[in-house]
Design a protein around this nucleic acid. Sequence first.
DNA 1: GTGAAAGCGCTAACAA
DNA 2: TTGTTAGCGCTTTCAC
Lengths: 338, 338
Amino acid sequence: LHKVTINVVARHAGVSKKTVSRVLNNESNVTESTRRKVQAAIDELGYVPSVQARALARNQSFLIGLIYDNPNASYVADIQKGALKVCRQRGYHLVIHPTDHESSTLLEELEELLSTSRLDGLILTPPFSDRRDILQLLQQRHLPFARVAPTQTASGSVDVISDDFDAAKKMTEYLISLGHQRIGFIKGHPDHPVSEQRLAGYRAALQAADIEFKADYVRQGYFNFRSGEEAARKLLSLTPLPTAIFASNDFMAAGVLKVASQKGLSVPHELSVAGFDDSPISRHIWPSITTVKQPVEAMAEQATDMLLAVIGRTGDAAPITHFVDSLVIRNSTAPAKA
Amino acid sequence: LHKVTINVVARHAGVSKKTVSRVLNNESNVTESTRRKVQAAIDELGYVPSVQARALARNQSFLIGLIYDNPNASYVADIQKGALKVCRQRGYHLVIHPTDHESSTLLEELEELLSTSRLDGLILTPPFSDRRDILQLLQQRHLPFARVAPTQTASGSVDVISDDFDAAKKMTEYLISLGHQRIGFIKGHPDHPVSEQRLAGYRAALQAADIEFKADYVRQGYFNFRSGEEAARKLLSLTPLPTAIFASNDFMAAGVLKVASQKGLSVPHELSVAGFDDSPISRHIWPSITTVKQPVEAMAEQATDMLLAVIGRTGDAAPITHFVDSLVIRNSTAPAKA
DNA sequence: GTGAAAGCGCTAACAA
DNA sequence: TTGTTAGCGCTTTCAC
């Protein structure tokens, strides 16, 4: 079995290789009859163009990078899935790049990734979406990029965002509607800008309901289980006790559940608990956790789509797409006792 | 800033591009002085060879595929991490390919992946590691592959395995050592060959302790939370009640915890529960789950390393590497009540 | 040990 | 609308 190249196809179809190339790239100036003839040859021979050769000739790599640092494996999996879906359709490969956002050599590491891989574009996820130093690096290299869930605008970027402020506000309003007045809050990691937005949503809901904001009821967390546990210990030693705790993600909410259980506080009867992210754990724990669901996969898909549009100078899609979060009510929340 | 190619380096070093190429590829027949001269030019100019050009000339893609279908996101993350580590070091890219192992078009999908991506090699994870049809496809295409945790041998493959039989046996022995005699078991997904091994380990431990095996105490599960829940409902309506339940993974163990909680059975005092995998949920749930830890990342790393050795016809490493699982004792297991 | 020439499979620029 | 001629940046002959 001989290797099928563009030359073989050209000969088979009785045209020049350039014409085959035109058909491959869907260029406009080809007669319909020629196109069909070429297509027939392609199908018949089972020809698949070599990405490698294409990459060299066009000085592209057909590689898209995905940068993340997220302990939430299912979030990462969703992001990957969304990005992959689009990449596959369009003949790109996804280069995943898990990395440590606190690393002091992050920028150098990124520069190396860019120069060795020659990526055609990059997808940034939190907390990288808002890292000025990274954005600057990409801009001066003229490397197209898309950002998932940034909080600040940046020139020349395409973004997908969801309204975490609004989601946190809605969740807090929901708790208030259940009769809760003393609602504890566990903040997210300070390096993640969404943390502030979620807190702001919480505060806005309190204010709208004329409930006094008390700093005691807010503790710093770091998006992991242990920090949720520690924050919960503090919150659950307050007097009067909060009747509800809203954690900025599900891992921390799981930590609250543990502490409540150890203290003999029954959830949701004596304490309501809410989380954020709709991670698998929110379903796999008992009581299951009321939380906020983001359309993460769809967001990644859209981000990738917009990025490829920029790379291919295709349609000029709107530079920002909005997605909406939704509340998922489960078993960890109930009306406050009278 | 001009683009730095091999020609620029050659001119700068006063040698031919072929010599630069030799240095790049660590070929033997280059004088030490020439090598140093060339290396100096490379460093000075900050030259990074183009993977694309290399790929075309050598008819390689520098792409390694990773096939998986696992709902356990953290398992996938670990596998990716291990594989990536090696790939990066050696200048390869990892093409991740999550897919549905039950899809009827799986084989075609794979064939398409192979022909469009021109992968240099493939890493198979369970349940694909034992899929005869896939192995056959790879063999006839002469595509090198490495398998993670296969249970059956296959010619021309490099494998990394861990002894799930032994680990399950040890866990069961541990439960027996706590005084448990009536130990329920929840089987894993029937499509995963490890499921049988874990069951066999359980049986072997019972037999060694002269405890009668009772089919009633074994229920089919599917590695997900819900199936664990359902199996637990069945097991916990038996008389006499089992005093311990060993689930073939942590998700199912979490399901057992839920049912126990709903039935008012206190874990671990009235019921001991054990899982498998050391997934994050085993730590994030209360009581935390006693489980089995596999060195997944290290296994993936080793598999990738061996695969690249095969591709590069480098050293002939042993075709099989063994890893050992370890018990992680947490809070879901305790001595049986007298 | 080193270099010149040819070519990997495709696309870009130009002609026809 | 189609074909011709040069490359893309490397590696591979095979000379020297």
